[in-house]
Computed example of a mutant assay.
Amino acid sequence: MKPTKLFYLAVLILPWLTVPFLGKNALKRHLPAAIFICTFTKIIDTFGEKKRWWRFYKGIPPFDSMNFFNLGPYLVMSLWILKMTYGKFVLYIISNAILHLLFNLLGLKLVDWCKIFTLEKLKKPQYFCINCSRALLLYGFQYIYDHNKK
């Protein structure tokens, strides 16, 4: 499969079609945390690419393929996972661990095949740990955001 501009646009746009089902209150409540974690992820992406942990394929200039993945499925999934599990920390951890494990087992092959990114120096268990750390950071940000808002 040769990636096209249409594919990258679909990766970006299709997840956003689910956002109206989140509800206005959930969107307003969790959007700052989702934006924070996507910004943090971009920083990690840049650092990891310089360290050759992974390599991103070209997307639609001036963006690489990971920008489309980060602003599409990753941001929207962050909103959904917070909506469904926030306030239930054990459920949040278990849900994220399962999602990240599935991504490690199946998703990494898919994103390489779809020409989004591929791991280079980083091993799958290390990538799993990075993802779990980001999940903790996302929850922590939302927790602090909620408590500062009160």
Rank of each mutant, 00 (worst) to 15 (best):
M1P: 12
M1V: 10
K2E: 09
K2N: 13
F7Y: 10
F7E: 06
Y8A: 10
Y8N: 09
L9N: 10
A10W: 00
V11M: 10
V11I: 15
L12P: 00
I13A: 13
I13K: 00
L14R: 12
L17S: 15
P20S: 07
F21L: 15
L22G: 09
K28S: 09
R29H: 03
A34S: 03
T39I: 06
F40G: 01
K42F: 10
I43S: 04
D45S: 08
G48I: 02
G48Y: 03
G48H: 08
K51N: 07
R52T: 12
W54Y: 11
P61N: 14
P62K: 06
F63Y: 11
D64G: 09
S65M: 06
M66Q: 07
M66K: 05
M66A: 13
N67L: 12
F68V: 10
G72P: 02
G72F: 00
P73H: 07
Y74N: 11
M77H: 07
M77Y: 11
S78Q: 14
S78F: 06
L79F: 00
L79R: 00
W80Q: 05
W80V: 05
I81T: 14
I81M: 12
I81Q: 09
K83D: 00
M84F: 10
G87I: 02
G87V: 03
K88M: 10
V90K: 14
L91I: 08
L91V: 14
L91M: 07
Y92H: 15
Y92F: 15
Y92R: 14
S95L: 12
N96T: 14
N96F: 11
A97W: 03
A97V: 02
H100C: 09
L101E: 01
L102E: 11
F103Y: 15
L105D: 02
L106Y: 06
K109Y: 13
V111I: 13
C114G: 05
K115Y: 14
F117W: 00
F117V: 00
T118Q: 12
K121T: 04
K121C: 06
K121M: 03
L122Q: 11
L122V: 03
K124D: 10
P125V: 06
Y127G: 01
Y127A: 04
Y127V: 01
C129N: 11
C129Y: 12
N131K: 04
C132D: 07
C132I: 06
S133N: 08
R134E: 05
A135K: 08
A135T: 10
F141H: 15
Q142K: 07
Y145P: 00
D146W: 01
N148D: 15
K149A: 10
K149G: 08
